[in-house]
């Protein structure tokens, strides 16, 4: 969008929902997509620079902050940073212990990373919608979405990683035969071999759908919540400047809850899925 002309409302909204996509355009060659059509034309072999940048910066911030607390850890009286980090770590640890009973040193750090990283990504939603994109425009970056979790690629990347771990641990803990049995012999089973043979495809269909739906629902739940929240902020930003606070402040306060809740749900479901793939029947 050219900043010289005042954009219409729908242009403004579309502009705010467009990622900074870098990829190969069939006509324009390698470069940054200008608008949704060009981005769509680039297809799969393109990358959302803004989502990648902000998610990596936030993840690095998480690692840096927690590493700092871990390096200066004092078993006696904790400092301010250490206390805050301890609260989060203890919270995650409690949830993991309550739900996940197998012995796997990966799960708790995984849950902590998911919780804090998603929380930070969601938190970007509270930055005023126009602030960073305008600054970006000032230095020549046409599009910028600063909330990585409003990009379905980001949430899918997380949920598919979790899905891959699910499959991996299912095979590792239950073995290939155990995993296949779980997919084919449940929930319906029969002592009669003929009836059992009929039930196997039914079970496979049910279990297959439930398995595939896990990463999809995990990704779309987070994406949908954050996307909707961001969209409301954008709509509020269309109001006259003197009226915006009346809506944006309550929505932002409500959104603090959503941000934390969505991060917690993603973490909790990950733990549950991991626990399910570690349980052998």
């Amino acid at each position: 969008m050219a900043s010289s002309e005042a954009p219409t409302s729908s242009e403004y909204i579309q502009h705010h929902l467009q990622n900074l996509v870098f990829g190969y355009h069939p006509e324009n060659g390698l470069g940054i997509a200008h608008g949704g059509d060009e981005a769509a034309a680039m297809g799969f072999w393109s990358i959302n620079l803004d989502s990648m940048f902000f998610s990596i910066v936030l993840g690095a911030f998480f690692i840096w902050l927690f590493k700092k607390a871990a390096d200066n850890f004092n078993a006696g009286v904790p400092g301010l940073l250490q206390s805050s980090v301890e609260v989060i770590v203890e919270f995650v640890d409690t949830n993991v212990r309550d739900t996940f009973h197998a012995n796997n040193p990966l799960i708790a750090p995984l849950a902590l990373t998911i919780f804090v990283w998603i929380f930070l990504m969601n938190l970007m939603d509270l930055v005023p919608v126009d602030l960073v994109p305008r600054l970006g425009e000032a230095i020549g970056i046409p599009y910028m979405k600063i909330v990585p979790s409003t990009d379905v690629n980001v949430t899918l990347g997380l949920s598919l990683s979790v899905f891959a771990l699910m499959i991996y641990y299912s095979f590792k803990v239950k073995g290939a035969s155990g995993f296949i049995k779980e997919l084919t012999l449940m929930p319906f089973s029969s002592g009669n071999p003929v009836l059992q043979a009929i039930l196997i495809p039914v079970n496979l269909l049910l279990e297959g759908v439930s398995l595939i739906s896990k990463p999809i629902s995990l990704a779309l739940r987070l994406f949908g919540n954050m996307y909707a929240g961001e969209l409301i902020f954008i709509l509020i930003a269309l109001l006259p400047f003197w009226a915006q606070w009346a809506l944006s402040v309550p929505w932002a306060i409500f959104h603090i809850l959503v941000i934390t809740l969505q991060a917690f749900i993603f973490m909790m479901l990950t733990i549950v899925y991991m626990a399910m793939s570690h349980e052998s029947h």
Partner: peptide, 10 residues
């Protein structure tokens, strides 16, 4: 659009 970002994110 689903694109390479998924992989980068993973």
């Amino acid at each position: 659009n689903v694109n390479l970002t998924v992989l980068g994110q993973a």
